[in-house]
Structure formats: C-alpha cells, structure tokens
C-alpha cells in the first residue's frame, strides 16, 4: 500500500505537488492530470527518487527514499525513454533484473518471461538505439516487471504505443493487478486508462482534485452541460428536431461552416440515443460528431470551477 500524508514537494519557487493525502491500495489506480500537474513528482516521491518537502510518503509503511528494502519490492517504468543505447533490450533487462535482486540462476528465465510478456521476443537482441518509441515502452515495462515486484509504478507507459500495443499493455497490467499487486499508472488521457481501471487520482496544478471511482466523476461531469459538435449535410433541417429534445439546452449554427452545428446537453447519454433515432428517421448524413468537453481538460475545468 502506498500512502501520502500531507505530502508537498517544491522545486525552489516551483510547486511539484501540494498537500496531497491519499492511499493507493491493491489493483490498478490511474494517476491522471495534464502535463505539469505533478504526476511525475508524485511518482518520484513514491519511488524514492525525491523526498517530500513536507508531509510523508510511505510504501508498505516504509519511507522509500534510498531504501533498498522498499526498492526491492517496487517496479518502476520511468517516463523518459533513454537507455544505455549500446545494449540490446535483453542485456538491459538482464542488468535491471540483477540490480533488482533476481538470483543469477533465475535471471535468464525471468528475463525471457518478461520480454515475452511485453511481446518483444523477436527484437530483444537488437541494440536499444534502433528501437522505435513503442518498442522502448515495451522494454521499459519488461525491466519494471522482471523481478515480479509487489508494487508497479508506470509513468505514462502507453505513450507511443499503437492501439494493439495499448490493449496488450492493458491486459498485462490487469493480469498483474489480478495477482493482488498494486499498480499505479500515470496518464494525461482519461479514456486510455478508463479501459483499465475505475480507480483514479486526479491531480491539477499539484493538488489532488478528486479521488475515487471514475464513474462517479463521470456522472459529476455529465450533470454539467456538455457541448457536442456535429458536422453533417443540411444541419438546418435537423436542427429544430434536435432543439426539441428535452436533453438539449441550446443549439447554434456555425456561420463560417454551413455544415456544422454545436449544441449543449445536460444528459449526453440520453442525447446520443435520441440523436441516433433522429438520424435514422431522417437518413441524415453525419460526417463527424464529437464532444469538446469530453476530455480531461474539460473535466479539470469543470471540477476547478465546481
């Protein structure tokens, strides 16, 4: 279990995290926040790279800073993708396995297993310098899980992965968590981690903005009027029908783009269902449909204002 009690970290005048208190238990917890929100600082505090300026951070009841006892149970996948570039992926994972305390006689099998789990069997023996971003992410995850740690901390591990890679990574982390391990994963993309876990921590400008089940936070957001932008042929024909829906609060046509309209709804799910019916009835040709509010930035704006 990871615990932060009133933890703050300042870099001179710059704030990293400010008075954060939370408990992270077994299973997957997503650490969400925009760039500069303090996610990496929180992760560095938990992995013992930094000490809190005030407050306390513990992992399984121990202070993590330069503490081999904690570090032997931690697996860490850093955000940056720099390595010892002249090594092959296998050499790198082997070095990290030995440094993490994997016994000499076990190391070969453990490394092979970790490399297999991240799907890097075919490229593990080529130099890291030639790896793509996605391959680097996979090798970073392999070195983090090679010693089968109790707690796995991953800083933006889905960056650079293609959709298939993301799904594989999600499956891998879920399987890891299903074995009773703690997984903390940071991301700035809400839907990316929503598929992996419901438990989230939301950081904004160094402060913990929300913690808990993503669905509860979603429902909070959904009560806030959502903007939905639609591009379609003849929007003025279908516009009055949309405005008549009880879930629609307002509607406006885009003067610059005759095929676009934007509306506001207080119940997005209901609107999407009703909208589908209208489109089918009128055989309308919808080209795009998206919600500018359905992203993390909008969540922050809403929660900060709320």
């Amino acid at each position: 279990m990871i615990e932060l009690r009133g933890a703050s970290r300042w870099y001179g005048q710059v704030i990293g995290i400010n008075d954060v208190s939370c408990t992270i238990g077994k299973g997957i917890t997503a650490l969400l926040g925009q760039n500069g929100a303090g996610k990496s600082t929180l992760i560095k505090l938990v992995t013992g790279q930094l000490r809190p300026t005030t407050g306390e951070v513990t992992v399984e009841g121990e202070l993590p800073f330069a503490n081999p006892s904690v570090q032997s149970r931690l697996g860490y996948c850093p955000e940056g993708d720099t390595f010892y570039e002249d090594m092959s992926g296998r050499q790198f994972v082997t070095l990290m396995a030995r440094m993490s305390g994997v016994a000499k006689h076990e190391v070969r099998d453990r490394v092979a297993q970790a490399i297999d789990l991240v799907g890097m069997n075919d490229r593990a023996d080529t130099r890291l310098a030639g790896y793509s971003k996605g391959m680097r992410q996979r090798i970073k995850v392999a070195q983090a899980i090679v010693h089968d740690p109790d707690t796995l901390i991953l800083d933006e591990p889905l960056n650079g992965l293609d959709p298939v890679g993301r799904r594989q990574m999600g499956d891998l982390l879920r399987a890891f968590a299903d074995r009773g391990k703690t997984v903390l994963i940071s991301s700035h993309i809400l839907h990316e981690v929503e598929q992996m876990t419901r438990s989230i921590l939301l950081l904004h400008r160094g402060r913990l903005l929300a913690q808990g089940d993503v669905r509860e936070i979603r429902s909070l957001i959904d009560r806030h009027p959502h903007r939905i932008s639609i591009t379609m042929e003849s929007p003025r024909t279908i516009g009055p029908k949309l405005l008549a829906l009880p879930s629609v609060v307002s509607l406006k046509y885009d003067r610059a783009n005759a095929s676009q309209l934007e509306l506001e709804t207080t119940d997005p799910e209901r609107f999407y269902s009703e909208f589908a019916d209208i489109v089918l009835q009128d055989r309308a040709n919808v080209q795009t449909l998206y919600s500018p509010d359905n992203n993390l930035e909008a969540v922050f704006k809403y929660l900060v204002k709320g």
Partner: peptide, 15 residues
C-alpha cells in the same frame, strides 16, 4: 544528463 539515473537510484543496490 543521459537521463538514465532513475534506473540506478530506484534499484535495491547500495548507492
């Protein structure tokens, strides 16, 4: 500067 330091300081090896 090579940004490989996290791999060293997060391992259970005496600094």
């Amino acid at each position: 500067t090579g940004r490989t330091i996290p791999y060293l300081v997060t391992r259970p090896v005496s600094r």
